[in-house]
Design a protein around this nucleic acid. Structure first.
Lengths: 337, 337
DNA sequence: TTGAAAGCGGTACCAT
DNA sequence: ATGGTACCGCTTTCAA
C-alpha cells in the first residue's frame, strides 16, 4: 500500500488527450468555453488514467482550501466523551457540509500546519497562544463556548448565566429557600457564569433570606460527585434542592441519595445543567437546564463560513440561552417537613 | 477579518535577512548546515515579520501532509451522538497527536479533496464508492468497525459475535432458557454478528431446548424501544432475560418494565450491548457487554500511521473482543416463578 | 556555508 | 476554443 507509482497529473491527461494543461483544467472546472468534442476526449483520458486532483497544488494556486479548522487545547478521550462535544460536532459537520467545507481537527499538541480557510476555537480561552498564531496568519476565526469582552471578536456561546438563573428561578417558584450547588472548578468561565446566574437570581428573590451551599467536586469522576453530594447532604443543614452544575456529577449525587435514603423529589429536588443521555429515562426523570449545543454548532459553522466568504450577514457575537426542561425530579417545597 | 494583506513568505524573510530562500528554508528545518550567525539573523527576520509557513506549498513540495483523514458516510447529529463515535474519536486524536498527525474529517456529502497521507473509514462498507476514490489515489487506508472477507484489506473492528456470545453465555450460566433479543436492523453487519453470536451460543448449550424471541425495533428512538419491549414482554410467553442489542433501545425497555411493573432483575434479567453513560448508576446498575471503542481507535490510529510511514510492524487485521461487565440487572433464573 | 534554479501540480491570464 | 506561460510558496538538488 505504499506510494509506489507517481500519481496521474493534469499533464499526463493533457498528453493523453492531445490537448494542453489549460484545457484539461477548464474541463475539470466545467467551463463552457471548451468544445464538446474536446471535452469528451479529455473526459475519456481523465477516466482512463484515473485522474485524482492534487489538493495541495490546487490550494496553492487558488489560495483556498475548502476546509475549516476546529482547534481545541486537548482533544482526548475525556473531551470527546463530554456531552457538549458530540452535540456541537454533529451540527458543525452538517452545516459545513452544506457549504461544501470539510473539517480539519487541530490538536494543540501537534505543531500546527495551517491548511484551512478559517478556524473555530472550541472551548479555548481567548488568550491562548494558539489564537495568536491564527491571528498572525490572518485567518478568519471565531470562538465557540467562550465569550469575549470586546465587541469585535466573533463568538457563539451559551448564556451560561441565564442557565443558572433558570435553575434558581425554578427552585424559587417551588418555594425552596435552602438550596445547594454541586459544581466543579468554579473559576473557569462556563462554570463561574452558571454559578453567578444562579446566585444572582437567588439574591434578587430573597435578598439575604436564603442559604446556598456551594460544594466543589475535586474532579468529574463519579466518586467525586458522590463525595461532594455526601458533604452537602449528610449534615444537619441539608438543602431541599440541589443544582448540579455539571452532568458528570449527577450519577454520584443519585447514588448518594440512594445511600442516604433520600427520595427525589420527595426529600430533595434536583436540577441538572446539561441534558445527559437518558436523563429523561432515569428514575425519576431528571429536570434539566439544557444548553443548545447543536444550535451553537450550527451558528458557529454559519458564522465562520460567512467570515471566510466575506459576507457580513450574521451577527458576530451570539449568546444562546439554555432551556429549562421540567421533568420529575423537582417539586414544591413541603413546609410540613 | 478578510484576507487583505498578502501573507509573509519565505521570500520576504530572505530579503529581510539578506540571504536566499534556500537558507531560510534550511533554518526553518533546523539544519546544522547554517552558520550560527546567519541562523540568528534569519530567526530575527522570521520573528519580526511574523512568518507563518504555507502548508499547501510545503505539502506540494514534500509530497506529504501530516494529516490522516477520517471518512464516514454520514457525519451528522445522530452519528456524533452515538456512543461509539466519541470513544473512537478521542483515542484516534490522542494517538495521532503522539505521532504528530492532525486529522481531517471527510464528509461523503462534500466532493472530496484528498489532502491527507492516509485514510480511515469509520463504519463505511467496503464496497462504498468513497473507497474506490481513495484506492485510485493510491492512499493507504484502513477500515474501522468493519471487517472484510479478504486477507489483505487492513481493518480494526470489534468481535461483535463474541460480544453476543458473552451475553448468551451469561444468561445460560444463570439458568435462563427463555430469552429475548431486542435489536435493530439485524441485517447490517455489526447487529447481524451480535445476534448470530448470541443465538449460536444458545444453540450450542441447549440445542433446540430454548426459546429466543427476536424483536426488531423500527428505529432507535426511545419510543421504538418501548414499543419493541412491550411486544416482547406483554405476552404470555414472556422471556426471563433480554439482551438489548443496542444501547439506544435501553431506556425504552426500562420504561416499559416500569409500566408493566416488572422488576429488574427480579422478574427480568437485562444485558445491554454497549456501556452507555451512567449505565452503572442506573437503578439497578445495568450489566453490559462493553465494546472497547477506545482500543479500536488506538489500534486504528497506530495501524494507519504504520501504513503511511511504510513500517510493516503491526497486524493489518485486528478484531477486539468486548468485555462482559456484570452489574445488578442480571440474576439466576428462579424456578419457583 | 550559501545561492541559483528546477520542480511539485495546479490555475488563470493573455495571445492566438 | 485552445495553447503558452507565469505564477502560487516551499523543498531540494547541485554548484560555487
Amino acid at each position: 500500500m505504499g506510494r509506489t507509482h507517481r500519481n496521474v497529473t493534469i499533464r499526463d491527461v493533457a498528453k493523453a488527450a492531445g490537448v494542453s494543461k489549460s484545457t484539461v483544467s477548464l474541463v475539470l472546472q466545467d467551463s463552457p468555453k471548451v468544445a464538446p468534442k474536446t471535452r469528451e476526449r479529455v473526459w475519456a483520458a481523465l477516466d482512463k488514467l484515473g485522474y485524482i486532483p492534487n489538493a495541495a497544488a490546487r490550494t496553492l494556486a487558488q489560495g483556498r482550501t475548502g476546509v475549516i479548522g476546529l482547534a481545541t487545547v486537548n482533544f482526548n478521550q475525556k473531551l470527546t466523551e463530554r456531552i457538549y462535544f458530540s452535540g456541537i460536532m454533529g451540527a458543525l459537520l452538517e452545516v459545513l457540509a452544506e457549504h461544501k467545507y470539510h473539517m480539519m481537527i487541530y490538536n494543540a499538541a501537534v505543531p500546527l500546519q495551517l491548511a484551512v480557510d478559517g478556524m473555530l476555537f472550541l472551548s479555548v480561552n481567548v488568550d491562548h497562544p494558539l489564537v495568536d498564531q491564527v491571528k498572525r496568519a490572518r485567518l478568519p476565526y471565531a470562538f465557540l463556548n467562550r465569550r469575549t469582552t470586546d465587541a469585535e471578536t466573533p463568538y457563539v456561546s451559551h448564556d451560561f448565566a441565564a442557565g443558572g438563573r433558570l435553575a434558581a428561578e425554578h427552585f424559587i417558584e417551588l418555594g425552596h429557600r435552602h438550596v445547594g450547588v454541586l459544581t466543579w472548578r468554579p473559576g473557569i468561565p462556563p462554570h463561574k457564569e452558571r454559578l453567578a446566574g444562579f446566585q444572582g437570581a437567588l439574591a434578587e428573590a430573597y435578598g439575604g433570606g436564603a442559604t446556598c451551599t456551594v460544594i466543589e467536586a475535586t474532579d468529574l469522576m463519579p466518586a467525586a460527585g458522590y463525595k461532594g453530594a455526601m458533604r452537602m447532604l449528610s449534615g444537619p443543614a441539608r438543602p431541599t434542592a440541589v443544582f448540579v452544575s455539571n452532568y458528570e456529577l449527577l450519577p454520584g449525587l443519585l447514588d448518594c441519595c440512594r445511600d442516604l435514603s433520600l427520595r427525589i423529589p420527595g426529600d430533595l429536588s434536583v436540577i441538572c445543567f446539561d441534558d445527559p443521555w437518558a436523563a429523561g429515562a432515569m428514575d425519576p426523570p431528571i429536570t434539566v437546564v439544557r444548553p443548545a449545543s447543536e444550535e451553537v454548532g450550527r451558528l458557529g459553522a454559519e458564522l465562520i463560513v460567512s467570515l471566510v466568504e466575506g459576507r457580513q450577514g450574521r451577527p458576530a457575537q451570539t449568546l444562546i440561552s439554555p432551556r429549562l426542561i421540567v421533568r420529575e425530579s423537582t417539586r414544591p417545597f413541603d413546609h410540613r417537613q
